[in-house]
Amino acid sequence: MAVQRFDVHSLAVILPVVVLVTLGLTMAVLNLTYNSYHETKDNVEVKAWWDGDHADIYVKINSKKLLPATIKIKEYVEEKKVYQPSKHILCSLTVDSTDKPLLVTGAVTSKNFEVEVLTPQKNLVFKVRLR
């Protein structure tokens, strides 16, 4: 069996990539785990987390009585000190099944926003603050 010779040059090329990528992956996983929001109110579950340059939002309706639900996302505008509907969404967001949660990616570029869930029974507001 041939013995592979230890090559310091290969190591010098490979090691920095391994270190950097491991560091990046660890930071990404830690950020996604700890810099996240999770709340359940009246059978409506909302999760949100920060993914580099945007927030990803997950909405799940656990009761058929609350269907169909319309989702509205409002971002905080620092200059005006008000919440305004996200401009990054051009169509209406609806959830019409308890099996199919809604995942919105890249629709919010602010870390301070509100997710409004409008159902036939009641309207719920989730205030999200990410770090």
Binding site: L20, V21, L25, V29, G52, D56, G106
Partner: peptide, 23 residues
């Protein structure tokens, strides 16, 4: 790729995809 995965019904965060793609 994050957008493509999202269209296909999967969720893979961009911050996780970037290092994997780099390698």
């Amino acid at each position: 790729l994050e957008l493509l995965a999202w269209v296909a019904g999967f969720y893979v965060p961009y911050t996780v995809l970037a290092p994997i793609l780099t390698v």
